[in-house]
Amino acid sequence: MSFNIPDDRRYLESHEWTEERDGTVRVGITDFAQDELGDVVFVELPDIGDDLDAEAAFGVVESIKAVSDLYAPIGGEVTAINETLFDAPELVNDDPYGEGWMIELDADGSLDDLLTPEEYEEQIE
């Protein structure tokens, strides 16, 4: 089975993706992660304004068979959260890289140390 791994993003071993967007960094979980979890039924996200440390757990994604913590790829302040997920958690399954995004950060560092798409693909093989 092959999973979608967009070229324009960086990845974490814990299956989050990051995307640079006009000064902020958007974070979500990968296609592989949503497939492993199965139907997502609940997403818990931080509040806007929360300061996150890199690698700290910032939220929870829950499916009918598992609960996973979400880890911050990088430190920074939360500038936006995807509130649509509270009522429509299925977006994480349907469109993990698009409408299923989770938070945006005012990042205080660079994404260069994160996994490249190739490195991430190797990891999930």
């Binding site: 829950e62 499916s63 009918i64 068979k65 598992a66 609960v67």
Partner: peptide
């Protein structure tokens, strides 16, 4: 909501 329970979430 069985993911709250010990058989899935164990020590958490």
């Amino acid at each position: 909501l069985q993911t709250r329970e010990q058989h899935i979430r164990r020590e958490r």
